[in-house]
Amino acid sequence: MTQPAVSKPLPEPDEPSLPFFQGATDGRLMLMKCADCGAFRLPSRHHCDECLSPTFTWEQASGRGTVRTFGVMHQRYHPGFALPYNVTVVELEEGPRITTNLVGIDNADIRVGMPVTVEWERHEDVTLPKFRPA
């Protein structure tokens, strides 16, 4: 698969997501954990969406999860993506679901429920969590 000449859109860390992206650079998948009810969440919000507590800690996730669902994109929306590619929702062991891509597998072999583990995709100034079959 040839890489497109144009970069895909890369996130720019903002204040609430900075520890997540710093963790990614260090090879650690970081989640927010509510200090009151203990629910894990993906960052970018200062309140727990279970109990509305504003108090939280950052915890390192195991990096393991399962495929919740996926699609295989054939429509060209952005020149930075080589078609077709998968868009996959991984449910992490800790509970939160993350929208990502599976690597190291043919799209035709992806199955809902399959175990996966995090793998880091490094770009110049940001690192993204992708997943591969466990």
Partner: peptide, 24 residues
């Protein structure tokens, strides 16, 4: 420009528009 924060993970994964959500 670049998508900000965690929401940017969607665009970085190539999740675009309602077609993606309904396919999932």
């Amino acid at each position: 420009g670049r998508p900000k924060g965690m929401a940017g993970l969607y665009a970085a994964a190539g999740y675009f528009g309602a077609n993606t959500g309904y396919a999932l």
